[in-house]
Design a protein around this nucleic acid. Structure first.
Lengths: 325, 325
DNA sequence: CGGGCTTGCTTAATCGTTAAATCAGGGGGG
DNA sequence: CCCCCCTGATTTAACGATTAAGCAAGCCCG
């Protein structure tokens, strides 16, 4: 490996001057900078990050902790973060907190031991990371006080609920996964907020929710709003088994616009997070905090986008009524 | 941050002794080791990885380069790798090679600059990383000569083809995504190899394949084997649109057992990779190479597992014949 | 009893980079 | 004409760990 010392020798100056020339920090003449840079390029010099880290205490590495790397959103977050990070010369070290808050703490420790400069956290459901020796950006939901940036889950819920109301549904089932999740609660809160006053809606949770939803449909509900595309896909299978067609007999919506949403049949009406925007902002926030700036704490809720596909339509009775007035 | 020096002062020995005691390398008395360890624990000492890296040239970090972090398999690979890695005290730095071979090279460079000790690569379709200054483990498919460990894609293809033949199908459509992908070619090769001699099969690729497959079904094909669950899901939508029921009129299979496979309707018959096993072996191989051992190059093709669900069944004609002899 | 070996620890150098302090020399202002 | 300051560079000292080499004391054994 070629070091700063070699360049210094070749050019005939001290290592300090080389360092200054290359980082643009001290006082070096234009001409000398040029000579040093060209020699550095010739030798293919690459600074030793380890040495720099030792001296400055900065590694240029961010830790990314997610509750479950198999989370379907993880790939997109990871990808955007990794791209955004490396545009800023940062690296991303991943860690899985494997479902438990305790494991999450371990993950923090491991990453901190590695000397990361900042921490990006998608926290375990219901947890919030304690004080850290490095800047932290939490990606969660607006109602988490630690949150730095997030999708507007509540607004997303409102969007989709309004859509379903607008096309005429008056009896609606809401289907959530896990009530511990703040994100899911917010999505549902957004839905119920936005419902027209003459709409009847009931919320069901978890495994038992599927049967409950079926029952409600038999009793006249015409739409099922879920808090996740996965739940929607599962619900659709149940509806199929019960010989109920989507969207003809019942409209169905998801959340997150996951990979399979556009290709399932019927293609799923859902709400998309602007993952790119969120990841980019998270990096910006972390980068700012690392530079010591007190990052602004506003404008960090990114709106969601309604994606209307074929799984929602005008309710049957209404359609009949409209076509035969 | 508490350093080795502080411990040395407290205990009244030199820093060298502390280092030796903590790493178990030099000659230190049992009693002294105990004293040093206990003091280190009291102070909450954590070695500086940067300093160690500078001196030893080892960072304890592995680079992971994937062609596309949104690849649906990525989460599982990343998760298992990250868990396996940290059991061995290693960290994982991710990088996205974003679809191009050139970007892949950039990713290598960025990671190498960071001083990684080893590289895990899932290569871009049709590429193979050149010589590297650090040990490399390629995860691809057995027919790639650089490959270190992989799922037995060919065997997986054979498994699912045999299953479909065994239950009585005699005219089969094979549907692949991108013929550039060595993985996909191997899967298909496995399928065609394993078909009974009296089975008629045709291979179609890419976007045009869906229509071609539909046509073949109309002409009497009773099963569609795809090289990916995503393709299968998409195909199922097309079948639905054409009013063809799965598995009643046509059997359908996927590949990879992705998250939605069990919950779509009908649940998808597919072939699962033992991602855990692959990731663990990849780490073991890399770890061995880092230690300088010439890693064994055998037993590194991990068998796939057939997962029979509801999307495959006895072909209609045959079923009729059997029920009314 | 003395040479050689082992044990337990210290000394000192080193990894590559940065940052603070210092220094030589020239130009400008009073 | 002298002093001060600015410029462009150098020296020096870290950062925190590892590691080869060295050294004193104690032990074994012929």
């Amino acid at each position: 490996m070629v070091s700063i010392k070699e360049i210094a020798n070749d050019v005939g100056v001290s290592t300090a001057t080389v360092s200054n020339a290359l980082t643009g920090k001290g006082r070096v003449s234009e001409e000398m900078i040029a000579r040093i840079q060209s020699r550095a390029a010739e030798l293919g010099y690459r600074p030793s990050i380890a040495a720099r880290a030792l001296k400055t205490g900065q590694t240029g590495i961010l830790g990314l902790v997610m509750p479950d790397l198999t989370n379907p959103l993880f790939p997109r977050i990871a990808q955007t973060l990794s791209i955004a990070a490396d545009q800023r010369g940062l690296g991303i070290l991943i860690a899985d907190s494997r479902g438990s808050a305790q494991e999450q703490e371990h993950a923090f420790r491991r990453l901190l031991d590695r000397g990361i400069d900042g921490l990006l956290v998608v926290p375990q459901k219901g947890t919030s990371p304690g004080p850290m020796p490095v800047p932290v950006a939490v990606i969660n939901t607006a109602s988490d006080p630690q949150n730095a940036v997030c999708a507007d889950h509540r607004g997303g819920g409102a969007l989709i609920a309004r859509h379903v109301c607008d096309i005429g549904h008056r009896r609606i089932v809401i289907l959530g996964g896990d009530p511990v999740s703040e994100v899911q609660r917010d999505r549902i809160a957004g839905m119920t907020d936005a419902l027209h006053s003459d709409v009847e809606a009931r919320v069901h949770w978890g495994e038992a929710g599927f049967a409950a939803a079926l029952l409600e449909v038999e009793q006249g509900a015409t739409a099922i709003l879920t808090t996740s595309d996965l739940i929607a896909l599962r619900m659709r299978s149940e509806l199929m088994r019960a010989q109920l067609s989507v969207p003809h007999q019942v409209s169905l919506t998801g959340f997150d616009d996951m990979s399979f949403a556009p290709i399932m049949h019927p293609a799923l009406t859902t709400v998309a997070q602007d993952v790119d925007e969120i990841a980019t902002r998270a990096i910006d926030i972390i980068a700012a905090r690392i530079r010591g700036e007190v990052s602004p704490h506003d404008g960090n809720t990114v709106p969601m986008r309604l994606v209307v596909r074929q799984s929602t339509s005008i309710p049957t009775q209404l359609a009949k009524w409209r076509s035969s007035p």
